[in-house]
Every structure is written in structure tokens, then in C-alpha cells.
């Protein structure tokens, strides 16, 4: 009797006993479709992560061209003030549950542009809630994959039917830079239409 990877307890290799929520979370965890969205340098590393050597497809991560089919938004690269509201719009179009990985120093905190730039937004978490921050300028594909693994831990705890925790789940090594998490501005449009718009 071998234990296959899966939620709950296994009686033999065909029967698992588990809660529905855990089963759904298990499914979500292994099929994180991400939005094909790249703004700057990190975007090249994101593409290379999808390339033949790192091949994130094997983690069930398939790029989707439209936010309506995506579970995960990887904010790869610098976000300027001009771009930020567009990112928010994209995020609002994603169906619940949705996750955001902030990839690279620019998306985390403005990175090398935080001090002297007039046009760069210091951290995309001012516009969308970020689950996992991946440091680096740009992060290597391995670092991105590590961030995704940290996110999967978070996805595993997501409850579709049960009570959801409102506490932010902070993953060690992927916390928000400068301690305090920024407050989200009030949305311009009603947020979270469940991808029906």
C-alpha cells in the first residue's frame, strides 16, 4: 500500500478520505494558471522560467493570455504610476480565488528606482494585495519557483467552503519589504466581480 501524493488519508492507492475543501485546495495548488504579463527585465526571466530549462509547466503552471482564465498574477517588473491602475484592472478581472506574486525589487519596493525616479511606483502592493514577494534584481528562475512553492503552501490553506482566515499568511523569506504592508487605495471600480464582467 503506497501513499500517493494527495490530501487526506489514503486507505489504499485508490481511495482517499478527505474534506472537500482540502481536495479543492489540492487541485488549485497543482494548477496555478498564471497571467502572461511582464513589464520589464523580470519578464525575461519569467519567460526563461517558462522555457525548456526551468519549465514551470511541470508545476501545473500554464500561461494564460487573459486574466479571466488566470489564478495567479506574477507582477514581473517595474510598475510606473501610469501602469499601476491597469494592473489593478487586470487583477479585478481575475476570478476568485486569485493570488499575486510580486517578482523582483521594483514590484516589491521600487528597487533601484525607489529613490531618484519620479515615475515609478514604490511597490505594487499599493494597488493589489500581494501574497508572496520574491526578492532579486531580477530574481533567477529558481528564485521565482521558490516563491511559487511558498505560494502553494498558502493556496493549500485556502478554504472554498469553510471559514477563511483574514490574517495575512506571511511566508518566511517572502515578506513585504520595509515591514509595514501598504494600504490598498479604494478601488475605482467595484472589485471582485468574480470574472463575470
Amino acid at each position: 500500500m503506497t501513499r500517493r501524493e494527495g490530501p487526506g488519508d489514503a486507505f489504499d492507492d485508490r481511495i482517499h478520505l478527505t474534506a472537500v475543501d482540502e481536495f479543492l485546495a489540492w487541485g488549485k495548488e497543482h494548477s496555478l494558471f498564471y497571467l502572461l504579463f511582464a513589464t520589464a527585465c523580470c519578464g525575461i526571466e519569467l519567460m526563461q522560467a517558462g522555457g525548456p530549462r526551468y519549465d514551470v509547466d511541470r508545476l501545473g503552471m500554464i500561461p494564460r493570455a487573459t486574466p479571466r482564465q488566470a489564478d495567479l498574477m506574477i507582477v514581473a517588473g517595474t510598475i510606473t504610476h501610469k501602469m499601476a491602475s491597469r494592473v489593478r484592472t487586470l487583477w479585478e478581472q481575475m476570478g476568485e480565488p486569485r493570488w499575486v506574486v510580486s517578482m523582483g525589487s521594483c514590484a516589491n519596493s521600487g528597487g533601484p528606482f525607489s529613490k531618484w525616479s519620479y515615475s515609478v511606483l514604490n511597490g505594487i502592493d499599493k494597488y493589489v494585495p500581494v501574497d508572496v514577494y520574491v526578492p532579486g534584481c531580477p530574481p533567477r528562475p529558481e528564485a521565482l519557483i521558490d516563491g511559487v512553492m511558498a505560494l502553494r503552501e498558502r493556496v493549500r490553506r485556502y478554504r472554498t467552503l469553510g471559514e477563511r482566515s483574514t490574517e495575512p499568511h506571511v511566508v518566511a523569506g517572502h515578506e513585504a519589504p520595509f515591514g509595514a504592508r501598504c494600504q490598498l487605495p479604494p478601488p475605482d471600480a467595484p472589485a471582485g466581480d468574480g470574472g463575470r464582467a
Binding site: 513589464t39 520589464a40 527585465c41 525575461i44 517588473g77 517595474t78 510606473t80 501610469k82 501602469m83 491597469r86 533601484p112 528606482f113 531618484w116 525616479s117 519620479y118 515615475s119 515609478v120 531580477p138
Partner: peptide, 29 residues
């Protein structure tokens, strides 16, 4: 302008050799 990161202004703010890393980001390919 969706990726205008004010690199030319940064050039007027940092010392001569410190601008080299910013040139990387003008064309990262």
C-alpha cells in the same frame, strides 16, 4: 510611457560610474 522609469533623470542624480547599472535596465535584452 507605461515603463517610463525616468532613467535620464537618474543620470543627473547619481555619480558617473553609478549610472552603469541603470544602462542595463535601458535595454535588458
Amino acid at each position: 510611457g507605461y515603463l517610463h522609469r525616468s532613467i535620464e533623470k537618474i543620470g543627473e542624480c547619481v555619480e558617473w560610474p553609478m549610472f552603469v547599472p541603470y544602462t542595463d535596465r535601458i535595454d535588458y535584452v
